[in-house]
Amino acid sequence: DETGKFLVLALYDYQEKSPREVTMKKGDILTLLNSTNKDWWKVEVNGRQGFVPAAYVKFL
């Protein structure tokens, strides 16, 4: 149950560059965990948590 969690859509592919980031593919649906930083949002994708560039995702 994803109640209270926001979902975001990956607009572009992103390859993680550090262990704190996660890789996503364009079209992936991600669970948004934290968006307090304007540049990097914490998400969960494929069972992994990490950061992606905020400009690469949008709210569903």
Rank of each mutant, 00 (worst) to 15 (best):
D13G: 05
G50K: 02
G4P: 12
N46P: 05
Y56M: 12
K17D: 06
N34C: 09
L60S: 06
L30H: 02
Y12K: 13
N37A: 09
F6R: 14
T3D: 12
D13I: 02
M24T: 03
V22G: 02
E2I: 14
T23N: 07
E16P: 14
F6Y: 13
F6C: 11
A54F: 02
K42E: 15
E44M: 10
N34L: 08
S18W: 06
Q49Y: 08
F59N: 09
L30C: 09
V45N: 12
Y56R: 05
D13F: 03
L9D: 01
N37Q: 10
D39G: 11
K5P: 14
S35W: 13
A54V: 06
S35Q: 11
S18C: 08
Q15D: 14
M24N: 00
D28Y: 04
M24G: 00
P53V: 02
K38F: 07
M24V: 12
S18R: 10
N37W: 07
F51S: 03
G27I: 01
N37R: 10
K38P: 13
V43C: 05
N37G: 11
K26H: 06
F6M: 15
K26G: 05
Y14A: 01
T3E: 12
L32D: 00
K42Y: 15
E21G: 11
T31S: 09
L33E: 02
G47P: 01
K58F: 10
N34T: 07
A55G: 12
V52K: 00
E16A: 14
F59C: 10
E16I: 05
P19S: 09
D28N: 06
G47M: 05
D39S: 11
K26V: 08
F6I: 11
A55C: 09
W40I: 03
K38H: 11
E2D: 14
E16R: 12
L60E: 08
L60F: 12
V52T: 01
F51I: 07
E2G: 14
Y56S: 12
V8K: 01
K5M: 12
Q49E: 15
P19Y: 08
L30K: 00
V43H: 00
F59T: 10
D13M: 03
A10M: 02
L7P: 04
R48L: 08
T31E: 10
K5E: 11
A10C: 08
V8F: 06
L60C: 09
L7W: 10
N46L: 07
L11W: 04
K5A: 11
G50I: 03
L60G: 05
R20M: 12
V45M: 13
L7A: 06
V22R: 02
V45L: 14
P19H: 10
V57A: 02
V57R: 00
L9W: 07
G47A: 05
E16W: 04
L9F: 11
T23P: 07
A55I: 11
N46F: 07
Q49R: 12
D13S: 08
E16K: 15
N34F: 06
A10W: 02
V8E: 00
I29Q: 06
L30R: 00
T31K: 13
Y12T: 09
W41P: 03
F51Y: 15
W41D: 00
W41L: 07
K42S: 07
E44D: 09
R20C: 11
A55D: 10
I29Y: 07
Q49F: 08
D28T: 07
L60K: 06
W40N: 01
V52P: 00
L33C: 06
Y14W: 13
L7F: 15
W40C: 05
L30F: 06
N34Q: 09
K17H: 09
R48W: 03
K42A: 08
D39Q: 11
K42W: 15
G47T: 05
V8R: 01
Q49K: 10
L33T: 05
V52L: 02
L7D: 05
W40Y: 08
W40G: 01
A55W: 07
L30P: 01
M24W: 02
K26M: 08
Q49P: 07
A10R: 01
G50V: 04
Y14T: 01
G47H: 06
L7E: 07
F51W: 13
K5R: 13
R48T: 08
N46E: 12
K25I: 08
K17S: 14
K38G: 10
V43A: 01
K42V: 15
Y14M: 01
I29V: 13
V52H: 00
Q49M: 11
Y12D: 08
D28R: 02
V8N: 01
K25Y: 12
P19R: 06
L11N: 04
L11E: 05
S35R: 12
T31W: 11
T31N: 10
L32I: 07
V22F: 13
K42R: 13
W41R: 02
P53N: 02
R48N: 06
G50N: 01
S35Y: 11
K25V: 10
L11K: 07
K5W: 11
N34D: 15
K42L: 15
N46T: 06
L30I: 09
F51L: 11
T3Y: 13
L30Y: 09
S18D: 14
V45G: 07
K58M: 13
V8W: 07
N46M: 08
Y12N: 09
D28Q: 12
V43E: 00
R20D: 15
I29A: 04
M24S: 01
V57S: 01
L60D: 06
I29P: 02
Y56D: 03
E44Q: 11
V57F: 04
Q15F: 12
G27S: 03
T3F: 12
P53D: 01
L33N: 02
Q49T: 15
P19I: 10
M24L: 10
E16M: 12
E21S: 06
R20E: 15
N37T: 06
I29C: 05
L33G: 01
E16S: 15
V22I: 15
G50A: 03
L7M: 11
T23R: 05
V52A: 04
Y14D: 00
N34I: 07
A55S: 12
W41N: 01
Y56T: 08
V43P: 00
L9Q: 13
L9N: 03
Q49D: 06
L11P: 00
L32N: 01
N46V: 05
E16F: 05
T31F: 12
G47F: 05
A10H: 02
G27C: 05
E21L: 05
T36K: 13
V22D: 00
D28P: 00
G27T: 02
V8S: 03
R20L: 13
P53Q: 02
V8I: 10
L7S: 09
E44I: 07
L30G: 09
K58T: 14
D1A: 15
D13R: 02
A54E: 03
Y12E: 11
K25S: 10
A54C: 06
F6Q: 14
V43M: 02
K25Q: 11
F59I: 15
D13Y: 04
K58Y: 11
K25D: 04
E2S: 13
V43Y: 00
R48V: 09
K5G: 12
D28G: 03
V57L: 15
I29M: 07
N46C: 08
N37Y: 09
L7G: 04
V43S: 00
F59K: 14
K25H: 10
F51R: 03
T36I: 10
K17T: 11
G27Y: 04
D28E: 13
E21M: 04
K58P: 01
T3K: 09
E44S: 10
D1T: 11
A10S: 05
E44N: 06
K17I: 07
K25W: 08
F6T: 14
D13N: 09
P19M: 08
F59R: 13
L33D: 01
L33F: 04
L60Y: 12
E21N: 05
E21A: 05
L32H: 02
G27E: 02
D1Q: 12
V22N: 04
W40V: 03
L7C: 08
D13C: 04
D39L: 12
M24H: 00
V52D: 00
K38L: 08
D1V: 15
L9E: 13
M24I: 15
D1Y: 07
K26S: 07
V57N: 00
E44T: 07
S18G: 14
K17M: 12
G47D: 08
L33Q: 04
D1H: 13
R48S: 07
D39R: 13
A54M: 05
G4A: 12
A54I: 03
E44W: 05
A54S: 15
G4C: 10
E44F: 06
L60R: 04
G47L: 05
A10N: 01
A10T: 03
W41Q: 01
R20H: 15
W41G: 00
G4H: 15
T3M: 11
